[in-house]
Design a protein around this nucleic acid. Structure first.
Ligand SMILES: [Zn+2]
Length: 233
DNA sequence: CGGCTTTGACCCGCGC
DNA sequence: GCGCGGGTCAAAGCCG
């Protein structure tokens, strides 16, 4: 009877894994599509330059590092801005030497548990799916399957990228408040899901499994607005 | 030893 | 011209 439960769990796990595989493939497709759209629009108008995303990072670390799948080389930091006393960091895309993309990262003034990252420019190279899976062999998937590993391990290692959900085309200034509204909705929706360990744990496991089996490598660390259990706004 | 972060200096556009 | 403020440079430092 216990074994039956285990079997059932494995079944569920497998279906989840398949779903995740499908989703990741769709995600790749979407990434490509976004690139195409960006390229197409860049041919028409150079208007779309800066986008803003909001990432929750509890203020326990001041590192101001936002992992979003790309690699960034920090080239500057301001201790203080006029309207925002928190430090602001300047990054440049380091994946291609010729890539002109820059981003600014600064903790929000209204909600200090949220970090605002402002991207400007478009990558002249593809999204580095392959490089996401760093060659650290680490835990074989069997251990995840067989062990009843605590979720803390997973959640520390895995961050899911929701940046696309928060992505905001067009210029920043005008859209600022509008962004706030939509992003709050997104955050509420996401957090309500993420509050539930019964949802997030199998998902995380399935993600790990899928990644491990797909790429035979581990170390994915996308970034994301994370479960902030009680964020009022 | 090499690459990345740190950090103050520097630059440059803008308003007065 | 001058001061201010955001953005960038690059020498020094740090770390594996
Ligand atoms: Zn790039």
């Amino acid at each position: 009877m216990l074994e039956a439960k285990v079997q059932h769990m494995k079944e569920q796990n497998r279906t989840l894994r398949m779903m995740v595989e499908i989703m990741s493939k769709k995600c790749q497709k979407l990434q490509l599509h976004v690139q195409e759209i960006n390229n197409a629009e860049s041919e028409f108008s150079t208007a779309q330059k800066a986008s803003q995303i909001f990432v929750k990072i509890p203020p326990n670390d001041n590192s101001l590092i936002v992992k979003d799948g790309y690699e960034w080389k920090k080239y500057g930091q301001k201790k203080t801005t006029k309207d925002n006393p928190s430090p602001r960091a300047y990054y440049k895309c380091a994946l291609a030497p010729t890539c002109p993309v820059k981003k600014k990262v600064q903790r929000s003034i209204q909600d200090k548990s949220i970090v605002v990252a402002t991207y400007e420019g478009k990558h002249n190279h593809g999204f580095p799916f392959r490089d996401l899976f760093k060659p650290s062999s680490a835990t074989p998937e069997a251990s995840i399957m067989d062990n009843d590993l605590p979720m803390t391990n997973i959640s520390n290692d895995i961050n899911i990228d929701l940046c696309l959900c928060n992505r905001v085309p067009t210029d920043v200034t005008d859209k600022q408040h509008k962004d706030g509204g939509s992003n709050i909705k997104v955050l509420e929706c996401v957090s309500s899901l993420l509050k539930d360990p019964n949802f997030i744990k199998p998902l995380a496991e399935a993600v790990v499994l899928s990644i491990n089996t797909q790429s035979k490598q581990v170390g994915l660390n996308l970034s994301l607005g994370l479960p902030q259990p009680h964020l009022s706004k």
